[in-house]
Design a protein around this nucleic acid. Sequence first.
DNA 1: TAAAGTAGTTTATTTTATAAACCAAATTTT
DNA 2: AAAATTTGGTTTATAAAATAAACTACTTTA
Lengths: 94, 94
Amino acid sequence: MFKELNPLLHSELRLAVMSVLIGVESADFVFLRQQTGATAGNLSVQLDKLAKAGYIDIEKTFRGRMPCTVCRITGAGRDAFEEYVEALQTYIKR
Amino acid sequence: MFKELNPLLHSELRLAVMSVLIGVESADFVFLRQQTGATAGNLSVQLDKLAKAGYIDIEKTFRGRMPCTVCRITGAGRDAFEEYVEALQTYIKR
DNA sequence: TAAAGTAGTTTATTTTATAAACCAAATTTT
DNA sequence: AAAATTTGGTTTATAAAATAAACTACTTTA
């Protein structure tokens, strides 16, 4: 009847992040913050969770001496997102 | 960019309940349990939340001497569900 | 009449989401 | 040039949420 919703993606902020990342080659912390409207603390925590799940890669570099966090979606992330959207359809399609 | 997801509907079980109720005139506790696969405790709590939000009406009657809880979606519930689905589109449509 | 099942509710626990507080470096103000 | 502010984050604390476990009350079955 209803497919299970991956709890890692069933979160407003993490879903927004994935939604941004699926459409771009990469996105840095500041860009993700702008797009999602999240606080830095919340974004930092949720990015870590996505990275630990293997859904995104996080590259921490420096631009000059300022930290710069660049994120990319992984293949597993793409798959999980697609599966999540399919599962959602079982709840919302009439 | 992203529309806010109504936190009352952004919950796997409550969303499943609403999804069932939107398609039927009414549904009792046992039917909702079957359709969603939820535990009785969890279902009871989540039904209360939906009722408190005005998204469903709960009628507690008896069938013989056994309790019987009948649920119906309200107009507000229908509206909220529709808005939630629209908000979701901003996250998942490519 | 004891055991098991039905239809739930209440309580307790674990997870989660989120904000607040913090840190280090850079920039701006006085 | 010292002090205050901003930038780009991380860590910690707290409030809210989901969920299961325990419980109640009644009924059916052995």
